[in-house]
Design a protein around this nucleic acid. Structure first.
Lengths: 123, 123
DNA sequence: ATGACATATGAATAGTTGTTCATATGAACA
DNA sequence: TGTTCATATGAACAACTATTCATATGTCAT
């Protein structure tokens, strides 16, 4: 007998703390859920899209307005709006040649506010 | 690289709603704030990092544990932990050769919950 | 019909990112 | 001391992404 080595951490073998890993594994959400969550945040992880969403917090706007506001090309804005549309974050209505975009989710503001709270806590 | 565009990206002079754009422009947060916010969400926009954070919701874990839990290489986990560290989302303590990571922010859970709420609302 | 105009979209490209591989660091132990 | 083990890290590479450019779609006016 070499003493109680059963709980000695060893990484190269397999797992350091097997009980912890086993317990955490059970508490983990479904793989698909985590994937979807990451995909959602990926949408928020671009300055242009964040800007567009903040703009839509304030007012319904057409593509042209947004492009002017952000000083970017109509094409760039349209591409990003497509991504926001696919994520069901914005909706749109057509009025003649103009397409007006607006928010389609009431949680985005809260998510952003929580994000800002984290940022503001950094010294 | 950027902005060799002397042309104003307005669609055509009259169609832009100047009043709306002007008002929204005043309500927009600082450029830097929006950039920081996007950077934060970029951190959340990766499945591996989301998984790590969810694991740390449940327990403090060492690098080895996390790698075993997620069935990924130690190196990959370590690289991702560095990003989470830089974003001040996780903290660590050293105990001998083992480094234990844990959450360093109480808002992440709320942000994730809001994200899940959005996802679950999609039909 | 034709032209003007707002928006959408495919292709190309430059920039970014996550993982792997190899190696370095740092701590415990013989 | 040298070895072992947990972690960190730089370089390389493949995969992905945001913008631009060119063009298509769709609507209104003439």
């Amino acid at each position: 007998m070499l003493g109680r080595n059963t709980e000695v951490p060893s990484c190269s073998s397999n797992v350091v703390h097997e009980e912890v890993v086993a317990r955490v594994r059970e508490e983990m959400p479904l793989e698909e859920t985590l994937y979807d969550l990451a995909e959602l945040f990926k949408v928020f992880g671009d300055t242009t899209r964040v800007k567009i969403l903040y703009a839509l917090f304030a007012a319904e706007m057409c593509v042209c307005d947004i492009a002017a506001l952000l000083n970017m090309s109509q094409s760039a804005i349209s591409h990003q709006l497509r991504i926001l549309k696919q994520a069901r974050l914005v909706k749109f209505r057509r009025q003649g040649r103009v397409v007006y975009y607006s928010l389609d989710d009431e949680h985005v503001k809260q998510i952003f506010d929580q994000g800002l709270t984290h940022i503001n806590e950094l010294t």
